[in-house]
């Protein structure tokens, strides 16, 4: 077994047996939220970090995923449809992504970001006002399929693992190189024959799919959604960016680390400070951006890269060559 595999398998096993060892529902809840945010951060990162298309409106996909499943269940299906209905949420979000991409990829840079934000806000208002389908501001209440938090723990663990694995595979494939090329220089990529709009759209669809699944899971787990929660600009869209930034954009594990820190900091301070607890997270974000512009994992990788280069230079064979 390689060293890398050990680093992956051992923590994974620990996470898997954790609920058997501890039955504290609060800790379990925190872990479930952490993994939910890992899914959100990692999927945002595929579009924002690796492909360079910073979206300020991913709540659109989160909310669509949540509402798609909620409406499916409310249309008379048994509650168990909800958890395999996660797929429905993902597909609905990916479908929405084609539409949003069709409009917003006409724009670049900050204008792309802001246009996604605008459309996501429009969707929130639709969810709020289209009462026949979404039940408006009252939201949708729903009886969860499982009473036990443990079941949700394993479901979200599986989703998180699949998301990380999928992003890893994508970034190792030809697709991933196209994404990086687009981020580094879109015009150069275009001139080399990459259909940039097509590949940006693919990146957005994959990203939206997993975000939608996460939204759908959130709805299952919480048993209640309303437009103000799942389409929230500052608590979902912006937080997905900050979580990714904190850990390190365009790194595989950065967003995951950022997600765990976010849940620890925000939930930790919620206990002691109550309302306004996010002030600490805000300060953390400012400090990270000022001193570690590429996030925690990004900065570690950078430092490692510098050290490797230094040692390489000292190697006489290298210098001779």
């Amino acid at each position: 077994m390689t060293k890398k595999a050990v680093f992956l398998v051992v923590p994974a096993l620990l996470v898997l047996i954790f609920p058997l060892a501890f039955e504290n529902p609060y800790i379990l809840h925190m872990l479930i939220l952490s993994m939910l945010w890992i899914v959100l951060g990692v999927s945002w990162n595929l579009l924002g970090g690796f492909t360079g298309q910073v979206s300020y409106g991913h709540a659109a996909f989160f909310g669509t995923g949540a509402y798609a499943t909620a409406i499916l269940v409310k249309s008379g299906q048994p509650p168990a449809t909800a958890w395999w209905g996660l797929l429905v949420g993902g597909l609905a979000a990916a479908l929405l992504a084609t539409f949003i991409g069709w409009i917003c990829f006409r724009l670049r840079g900050p204008y792309f970001s802001l246009s996604v934000l605008a459309l996501s806000e429009v969707l929130r208002l639709v969810a709020l006002n289209w009462k026949e389908v979404t039940n408006g501001a009252e939201g949708i209440l729903f009886l969860p399929a499982f009473n036990d938090k443990g079941a949700y723990y394993y479901i979200i663990f599986a989703i998180a693992a699949i998301t990380i694995f999928a992003v890893h595979r994508v970034m190792k494939s030809k697709l991933g190189f196209y994404f990086l090329a687009i981020r580094e220089d879109q015009d150069a990529a275009e001139s080399l024959g990459i259909d940039t709009t097509k590949y940006k759209l693919i990146s957005l669809m994959i990203s939206a799919f997993f975000t939608g699944v996460a939204g759908s899971f959130y709805m299952n787990y919480m048993g209640f959604i309303d437009p103000g929660i799942v389409f929230d600009l500052s608590k979902i869209s912006i937080m997905m960016i900050l979580v990714t930034m904190l850990g390190g954009a365009a790194t595989l594990w950065g967003p995951a680390l950022g997600a765990v820190i976010y849940i620890l900091v925000s939930e930790g301070f919620r206990v002691y400070v109550g309302s306004g607890h996010l002030v600490f997270f805000g300060v953390l974000i400012i400090v990270i951006i000022l001193f570690f512009p590429n996030g925690i994992v990004g900065s570690i990788l950078e430092a490692k890269g510098r050290r490797d280069r230094r040692t390489d230079n000292k190697d006489p064979k290298q210098v001779a060559a």
């Binding site: 970090g49 970001s113 960016i241 805000g282 590429n294 990004g298």
Partner: peptide, 14 residues
């Protein structure tokens, strides 16, 4: 930085 939008996110933090 990797993302050119750090400055925007800084204002989000503020």
């Amino acid at each position: 930085s990797v993302l050119p939008q750090n400055q925007v996110l800084l204002t989000v933090g503020i």
